[in-house]
Design a protein around this nucleic acid. Sequence first.
DNA 1: CGTAAGTCGCAATCCACGAC
DNA 2: GTCGTGGATTGCGACTTACG
Length: 775
Amino acid sequence: MKLYAFRIDEELSYDSIQRRLYKGLTRFAKNDVFTGFAIVELNEGVNVYVASQNPNIEKYVKETFNGVNIESLLLEPSAKAQALRNYRYQFLNSYLSLLLHNILYQAGFRRAGRNYWIWYENPEYPYRIRVDVDLDPDTYYAYVSIDIYTPMQTLLNLVKNSNSYQKLKNKTVLVPLGEDYVWGHIVDLEDAPVTQSYIEQKGQKISVYEYWKKIKNVDINKNERPVVIVEVERKGKKSLLKYPPSQVRVPVIEGKLFPKQRLNAIEEILDIVTAHFKPFNIDFERYTLNRYKYYDVISNVWLSYRNNIKTYKSPLIAIQEEGATLLSFADIRRLLVLVPSTLLNEEEGMKESIKRLFTLVSVIFETYKLGKISERRTEQFIVVEDENETSVKFATTLQQLIEKYKLEPDKDFIVVVYPDSYKQLYTDTKRICSQHWFHSQLIRVSTIKKLIKYIKGFNLSAEKKESITIWYKWYEENIVKRINELQSMKRLSDEDRKTLNKLKQFNSILFNILLSINAEFSLQRTIYQRQIPQNIGWKLAKPADGEDKSIYMGFDVSRSESGGIGVVVVLYNAYGSMLNATIAPIAGEKLTYEDLRGILLNIFSRVSQDLKDKTRLVIYKDGPIHSSKELRDVLKAFNDVAKQFGFKVVDVIGVIKRSNLRVFELTKDKKGVKVQNPEAGWWTGIWAIFRFGVKAQRALVIASQTLQGTSRPIMLEWYTPRSDKNIEAIVKEYLSMCRLNFWDARTGLKKIPLPLNLADTLAYLFKAGIPIKTP
DNA sequence: CGTAAGTCGCAATCCACGAC
DNA sequence: GTCGTGGATTGCGACTTACG
């Protein structure tokens, strides 16, 4: 390895040099063995350092800076050390991408789509991959992360045992074009071997076989057939190109990957990448899980209910087995169930089945003290083939029914059953209901059918009487008791296991509907009465920060379809009681410091009595900070206003729902290493990141239990670290706020903390143009 | 039912660069 | 100087599937 140095005697910024180097050296890397790293110094002109084994590097750098005054420098070791000290984080970070890019290229990968790579030299490796590199601003360690996406296979595999090519027409495929892979679709298939199909190349006719063999230097089989004609689009220009089937990759429809499969596929790439790093004297170390910590969020974060029951158990268990009652009691005078005509006409006796289902709903509702439903009415709305027409008819029907029954938001509630494919009805319902101060519960036709099927399957359709005791007995004996029985059995037959799953599923779905009705009605009633819906369901038994000194804010900015900006701010105390919520529309194009300051002043003054003795404000922001201006404005507004209201500390935390980093739990047993998704509560602090000159401390958090596929951790970015809290405290209170989610009966735990979840929901409604009423 | 994983496509952002 | 453009990068929206 040699360090080459160059001097540029012109005024060029770091960025322009970085860009040129990146572009130029990437280009050279594609047809030569270049890689290395570069450092730029700005004292007395510009020094560029490039380390490489390739003596051609001198030529490349000079060509890259063609037209710029550049000369080679002779370097002494001390100068090299000095150079290494003076590099810039940003520059090196970008330059690492170049290194990685080159390494992937040399390892036989080609770009396939924006962020993805495909293993060109190994068609047997089925995945597209994504590789990112991060630089730790504290230690200057580089972190390489790898993940895999969409499995692909070559078309050769697909046509090997088949002659019916026609079904492949119109398929979306990846094909090599120039240096990269691009997406295209199959237009036609020519049933001829590659030696018998010709293309025009510089005025000469050559066979597809010869083209790949001689010009592309790729070994393909002479007998490959058929020749695939693919339409590709590049820079707006469409063209038809001929490919041998071995060069065409088609997506394989494959379900979600278990952690083990995913890790295996990643390991394969990891080995290749590390092997290619070796010649450059870069040490590799696995970022292992021993840095992980576990916070048993379920048993440490207890929930508190109305009848003073405090328990760590999941809400469903707490309610059904421990007799816990929800903080919100929904006293519903009349439940209006609106059902589509298509469902009623589908089958004889459907109306009866639906009525009975809602009788059961009411009975369980009352039994577990979620509330009381005194009266139920089932009405229908007409569904026609055209969705827009259905929408119009539905709106009229719903308005008429609200009038006919004289429904009142603090007394009555609306449930709408809608055909799965009529998505518009969802927003229609929310919009019309909201205009009349109603919330609503929507249920898909498929869910209703599933529930009815279960009830029939549990062999109770014979029961015709609608007596409450009979329904209660039925539910108690056939669902609750049976689940308990089966769960307590040590060994289950396959049959029993199936039954248990069905029962649990039925119970979960039903309970989720019940909880939703309780929650939505309670929200509707309190807001109509111009009050704050403080607690729905349950609250924390202990304050999330351990001392009840913090206020928690969910913060989201959303853009409606008409272009307006809405700022959503939701405030909670440390027990998870809501203090206030607001959606403030912004007049301008962008959210400014002044806008935000006004909004915050307004909401804080409205809850000023709740802020007494509170010294800390925690802000959960949806997503990362997107620009330096945003960061400046947001921090300034938060800080200015927070100080006015007596806060001493403001913690701004970006919550990134979809990070590109994965986490696996490896456990050794007799059979070897077991690869699993980590349990909810595992977390780790990871390397920090510079965003627009501000360093953010980060943590990866497994906030919910993954039931399928590979878990995707939440990434927390803490922009304002203070000494009196550490990342551990931030993570723990984050996990506590996640337990407040009152829509999921099964665990009462979700990836997003309640304040942010609610901000998210409100932002979504704002975006969909639904008028939102807040107290 | 709500939730989460997984898919594609795209919007937002930054910045240099070139045309005017 | 100003404005549009285009590459690179990064997450999100909208969709589907599966689970209790």
